[in-house]
């Protein structure tokens, strides 16, 4: 089902009682706020926070028993996902669900979610999806896509799940007019041009799936950027595709322990640190911050395409916004790529 129209008011009415979810890290918001957000640039936080919580019990163990955590989230719609966020989910699906082992919490939440995306009606100053093979409009990976036009949205439904969600929410669409479709295309072109134009000077141009040749993580060229890094880990925390984690145990009582999965950051010095401090053992393969910074960028732009055919960067620009040292990933990659 494509090219339908839904008025803003109808959407507001239908979703008034809905247990819906705005894409910003699982925060539940009022419908009016959610709908207003659909016309704004992508939110500061990505849906990773809900789909893949930063701190999560993965089970308990103790004297002779184990119990996996009970997690069966009710289906819910994540509304307002942007194309970059859909691209991030596509990547996370590859890394967390398509190997020999599947990440259980991400799997259950991901499977429960109805993905309602929206075209970007505006771009944040750090958005650069068009520099990494993306566009500010969703072309696949969604259940329902809403393209903002005057008074409402042009609606595209790409799955039975999306159809069922529309029906359950009582969202009745009417065929979009030729004007509305033309307006959608105009807005799409304008936002795409805006993103392209704000990134023209960065020189960053990577095709989706292209593995970049960058200096390796032993190369001093990275020092120029690492000099500004304060090793806070904000970039990995805010990144919609960073998924590295660490498992630790905590005592719940005598003989009973809980295993917790927590986000970790490859930027931090403790990330690679091994046991053993004798003189003939190197405690970490990347003792230098510049090597860790390099490893992060290399993972996104070099290793990820080799691992799964997708870039690990979706061009959302959140890491640029979050960086205390004002490191601009566009500049880093733009300057270091051959």
């Amino acid at each position: 089902m494509t090219g339908q129209y839904l008025s803003r008011q109808k959407l507001a009415e239908a979703l008034a009682d809905e247990q819906c979810l705005w894409s910003a890290a699982g925060e539940q918001v009022e419908v009016c706020e959610m709908i207003a957000g659909l016309s704004e640039p992508r939110s500061p936080l990505s849906p990773k926070g809900w789909l893949y919580p930063s701190l999560q019990s993965v089970g308990q163990y103790g004297d002779g028993f184990t119990s996996p955590p009970a997690e069966a989230p009710a289906p819910r719609a994540i509304i307002g996902l942007r194309a970059c966020e859909l691209a991030a989910l596509k990547y996370l699906d590859k890394m967390l669900l398509e190997g020999q082992f599947q990440e259980p919490v991400y799997r259950s939440r991901r499977k429960s979610a109805v993905l309602v995306s929206t075209d970007c009606a505006a771009a944040a100053p750090t958005c650069f999806c068009t520099s990494v093979g993306g566009l500010p409009l969703a072309d696949d990976g969604y259940d329902v896509n809403l393209s903002p036009v005057e008074g409402g949205f042009v609606v595209d439904v790409a799955s039975d799940r999306g159809r069922a969600w529309l029906a359950a929410a009582g969202l009745e669409c009417i065929p979009a007019s030729a004007d509305q479709l033309a307006q959608r295309d105009r807005i799409r072109r304008a936002v795409t041009e805006a993103v392209e134009s704000q990134n023209r000077s960065t020189g960053l141009e990577v095709a989706q799936g292209q593995s970049l040749v960058l200096p390796d993580d032993g190369d001093p060229a990275w020092q120029r950027y690492a000099a500004d890094c304060v090793e806070c880990g904000a970039c990995t925390n805010i990144c919609p595709t960073c998924y590295c984690f660490y498992l630790y145990d905590q005592a719940l009582g005598p003989g009973l322990f809980e295993r917790v999965r927590t986000w970790d950051s490859c930027i931090l010095g403790t990330y690679h640190r091994m046991a053993g401090t004798t003189s003939n053992m190197k405690p970490t393969p990347r003792p230098r911050l510049r090597s860790r910074l390099a490893n992060r960028v290399l993972h996104k732009f070099t290793y990820a395409p080799q691992q799964c055919g997708l870039l690990g960067c979706v061009g959302c620009g959140r890491c640029i916004e979050a960086c205390l040292g004002a490191i601009d990933l566009r500049q880093v990659v733009g300057e270091l790529q051959p």
Partner: peptide
């Protein structure tokens, strides 16, 4: 993790 997920 031991399972190719945690990244380090």
């Amino acid at each position: 993790c031991g399972m190719g997920l945690c990244g380090r």
